[in-house]
Design a protein around this nucleic acid. Sequence first.
DNA 1: TCACGTCAAGCAGAT
DNA 2: ATCTGCTTGACGTGA
Length: 297
Amino acid sequence: MKIGYPCINRTLECKANRTFRLKSYSESKLVEKVENNLNCLDKILKYNIKNNILFFRITSDIVPFASHPICKYNWQKNFRDKFEKIGDVIKNNNIRISMHPDQFIVLNSKNKDVVNRSIDELIYHTEILDLMRLDATAKIQLHVGGAYDDKEKSLDRFVKVYNNLNENIKKRLVIENDDKIFSFKHCIYLYEKTKVPILFDFLHHRVFNNGESIRKVLELQRLTWKKNDGLPMVDYSLQKPNFRPGSHAEKINIKDFQNFLKITYPFDIDIMLEIKDKENSAIKAIELAKKDNRFLT
DNA sequence: TCACGTCAAGCAGAT
DNA sequence: ATCTGCTTGACGTGA
């Protein structure tokens, strides 16, 4: 079991998601931002290692506009060494990595351009992880997409597009249940058609489910991850009181997390804490897991 | 230095 | 029709 947090560290001064406006695009600006982002990613990883945080989601903003036609710069070649060095830090310290392309990536869109641009984004995410020379345990997590008032057709479109993706993408892509359109059950349907592993989002499931117990979900989920995929990943969050269902809490709630550890026992999973105060909650969660005698490696 | 309008991209649901 | 949220607020112009 590993426990981690996504994208941003609130203790360190630097940010690995610096970007800029398309209007002010220039190659020098791109280079400046990528340099900043990679240096900061390196600092965050070292902070995490010091604090025994061995799971981290890398922001999609590492290389701004990477999949946009405006970008002609060969960042893959020119930053290869830096990517490799960061990859070495990750591998030498046995860190688990994920990425989460944002909401604009819709593989089952009815619009062919959207699908093509989405695939370009997946290629970009894949390139980042490949440049770091990470194995297939480094995952790219994606929601299934839009429903367009006909979920069955949407799911079938997803299957068709997925089957035509190249193996480099497929070996990293996992799908996640969302909080209003495609539940865990829909993900199982897609797994049966495509063998795509399922990343289980605990809060989304609380908001939108088909009555399955957590134990049942974890049993099913485990079957969707092959040995090469590493431990199943689970996103954990907590409802922010008095906000719309699914909104993320500001900080960890000890009782709720202890309960989560209890109901997920004895499944060995890697837990991504989607909580606003990031590394602070991760550090607390790791302490709680240790107290609970969970095996943290 | 700071306020604040705006930012590459899709979709659903609320207002 | 327009706004908001989503994994995450930050950019950058103008005063």
